[in-house]
């Protein structure tokens, strides 16, 4: 465990907590894409299949449980909570995210490290996570104005994968045989998808103006 990895996990945890905090306190999910949340729940469900079979560390197991519980509870909140669900704008959140699931699954069948169920599901979760933010970014473009918590959520979510990239670079130079092209490339694609959001987020922070994404 290196500092980049720990910082990445803490940033990822913060993004989930910011989102849960927003939904739980102001009882609203305005500006949040349910589809991205559903994709993330699927990412964790397919990635943490080894939760009960491979024990790595208490930290590892604890974080997996937190991510699983939080992602599914966010989906539950937006879908079923009597107050929160009213603020979900399904007319705007129209990204056909099922079109992301199938290509990721097919790609995982073709490009993977080992052709086993667990490995393919793990690889599928990597590819899916790389594109899971798309419905949220499309929604932000549509609704244009971004409230602070949503902006922070997306920023932290993008930042965590950038920190993971630093972690992979660090591990590549410090651990022999540490080569995971699939993880690295999908992580890079994921971070690049956030690039333009980061640019506008930084601009709004530097000029101290409200975050506006161009149409």
């Amino acid at each position: 465990m290196n500092i980049f990895r720990l910082a990445g996990d803490m940033t990822h945890l913060a993004s989930v907590l910011v989102l849960l905090l927003k939904i739980h306190t102001i009882k609203s999910c305005a500006g949040i894409s349910l589809k991205t949340q559903e994709l993330y729940a699927l990412v964790f469900a397919t990635r943490y299949l080894d939760l009960f079979t491979d024990y790595i560390s208490l930290y590892n197991t604890l974080m997996k449980l937190i991510f699983l519980v939080s992602s599914f509870s966010i989906v539950w909140y937006i879908r079923h909570h009597k107050i929160v669900r009213r603020s979900y704008d399904k007319d705007q959140d129209t990204f056909r995210h099922y079109f992301l699931v199938l290509p990721c699954f097919l790609l995982a069948l073709v490009i993977n490290e080992k052709f086993t169920v667990k490995e393919i599901m793990w690889t599928f979760s990597l590819y899916l996570e790389a594109v899971a933010i798309l419905p949220q970014l499309v929604l932000l473009q549509r609704t244009r104005n971004i409230d602070n918590l949503t902006g922070q959520y997306v920023f932290l979510l993008g930042a965590y994968r950038s920190l993971y990239i630093l972690n992979w670079i660090y591990r590549y130079f410090t651990e022999p045989h540490y080569v995971h092209w699939i993880t690295w490339i999908s992580g890079l694609v994921q971070t690049l998808l956030y690039a333009d959001f980061f640019y506008y987020y930084f601009q709004s922070w530097k000029n101290n103006v409200k975050l506006e994404l161009p149409a």
Binding site: D50, D54, E113
Partner: peptide, 10 residues
């Protein structure tokens, strides 16, 4: 032989 590296990342 190289053992399959365990998935220790989240």
């Amino acid at each position: 032989y190289q053992t399959q590296p365990v998935k220790d990342e989240l």
